[in-house]
Design a binder for these strands. Structure first.
Lengths: 303, 303
DNA sequence: TCTGGCTGTTGCGTTTTTTGCAACACCTTG
DNA sequence: CAAGGTGTTGCAAAAAACGCAACAGCCAGA
């Protein structure tokens, strides 16, 4: 959209913190970009960027304008999506923010299906730490967030919200493998393969351990959940994962998943939603509804 | 704001219904304007105007886009006003929609004061029929509406809302002039000078008369309230007006105003507000607050 | 039936705007 | 003091927008 050039320029500069790098990404020269900003500032009668030797930084007026420009860009996307929708073909781009616990197996399947049903709808998926995911909604970087144990609910308008059962993943020859369920203190005798700190599932485990008066000392910490699971193979070490992230055919890897009981503390909740007060583009709204339905049918029985 | 040229062009065409008249008001040639629209439509991949022999008319996609553009323009005004506000000087333009019953004496005084306090804040005042005033908020033609007996409250977010006493205005030598108050059937023996139909005050009088089983047959109907009041001078005819529209020094015109009692029916309410869900520019928001304070202190005692 | 007036549209030459290039001045870091 | 980062500016070339004039269509009134 040609008339949104200036807003996009401003937003890119603010994001990159420098005129030159922004110009490069925008495919124009720094001088052209600079002049655009100067003329915009002249129009407004106010400077919107602080000039530092290290680059440009929006001042108070700039932040105000930036917010407006971001909304404007997002709104235009929404309108374009609506127009495409009434023209018969659903189209648009959907940016999804999520955490590692969620993406595997669940999201890919839904996206694949959408690509078949609506080829004109494209996707972007951002793997973020907990909290960052929600924050990325504020500046419209992402449209939808799927987060386990969200931090600040103030910004997040939930569409789906439900508890997620935790599982302990272990070798099928493991001493605990035959049990119907496992409690946290059953695990303390074995090597623990834990996700790194900011992760929501790690927090649930920490709280759970604290409740029983112990502390979890992992033999391996990683933010690669794949790595953790694979470490469980042919060893006594235990890894953990959420129901939504359980691999379909665990037995092929000689692994089993046993439900982890956490008496006394509430299970962690998985939330899918969008920025509070924002109206999503049609494509994004429908996809979020698909996510909701899928989560509801898959996990409603577990409570 | 240069980057809002296209939105303003589209909005002007939609408002005027014709490319040529819009081009004239915008100070450019029809060909230039036409090309802007064509290139916009090409960008969108969809036509946004229906071409009739009589002119251009937005189609469904166009209406969608139009709404977005209008919001965008209004939002930019709000941001500019905010930026001006943090820069120390309050600035902006305030468009006010109101009805004839309200403007006189009340609004001019407030606007005069504002022009003194904030010279950079400019005003536009639209005299509209009841209903049109509220409707003009929807497309952001006006920021603030002050209406007696509003029709559709769904769109109007009230900031002030209070009842308005009605008065009967007559010559000071009139037989009724000495009474403390007047009822509607006291008036039926005299010539009635009534506002024209859509006016809110007329509706109140009609309802009031209907309640007593009579009908009001005016000797003169007009939408000029000034004219009606002047007709009361040196005659037995009666005119009516609201508390807010009472002339300060009526006795100089040899007129008096006697309160009109309307037992059994609620007094009409005067409402000042803005479009529901919209955040006003600072200048407009503060002025609306001034209106609210003024109305509250002036008419709170009357109940 | 024709004419006048309204509509949007298009080709072309001109004007205005925007751009890229290169050089510059500034600050920080090694 | 040199190297690498920043934003800024002069100038000429490229691109976009514009105005003018002519055109085609529709419709109401003579």
């Amino acid at each position: 959209m040609r008339h949104l050039l200036v807003p996009r320029y401003v937003e890119k500069i603010a994001r990159n913190g420098s005129l030159r790098s922004a110009a490069e990404e925008l495919g124009i020269t720094p001088s052209a970009l600079n002049r655009r900003i100067l003329s915009l500032e002249e129009e407004l009668g106010v400077e919107i960027f602080e000039r530092h030797p290290s680059g440009l930084r929006p001042n108070i007026a700039g932040e105000l304008l930036l917010k407006h420009f971001r909304d404007q860009i997002a709104d235009m996307e929404r309108v374009k999506s609506s127009i495409a929708d009434i023209s018969g073909q659903r189209a648009g781009h959907i940016n999804i923010a999520t955490t590692r616990e969620v993406v595997q197996y669940f999201l890919p399947a839904l996206i694949k299906q959408s690509l078949i049903d609506f080829p004109a709808v494209t996707f972007g998926v951002d793997l973020l730490e907990r909290g960052e995911a929600e924050h990325s909604l504020v500046d419209n970087t992402n449209d939808i967030a799927i987060v386990f144990e969200p931090l600040r609910m103030k910004e997040l308008q939930p569409v789906y919200s439900g508890e997620q059962q935790m599982f302990v993943v272990m070798s099928c020859k493991h001493p605990l493998a035959k049990k119907d369920n496992v409690k946290i203190y059953d695990c303390l005798d074995y090597g623990l393969l834990l996700p790194k700190r900011p992760e929501g599932i790690r927090r649930m485990l920490d709280i759970s351990a604290e409740k029983t008066g112990t502390t979890l000392t992992p033999v391996l910490e990683s933010n690669s959940l794949d790595l953790l699971r694979l470490m469980s193979q042919d060893s006594d070490a235990l890894s953990f994962c959420l129901a939504i992230n359980l691999r379909p055919n665990l037995e092929q890897d000689n692994l089993v998943a046993i439900p982890l009981l956490t008496p006394g503390i509430a299970s962690g909740v998985l939330v899918a939603g969008h920025l509070r007060g924002r109206t999503l583009p049609v494509a994004a709204a429908r996809f979020l509804e698909t996510i909701n339905k899928e989560l509801a049918t898959k996990f409603s029985a577990m409570g």
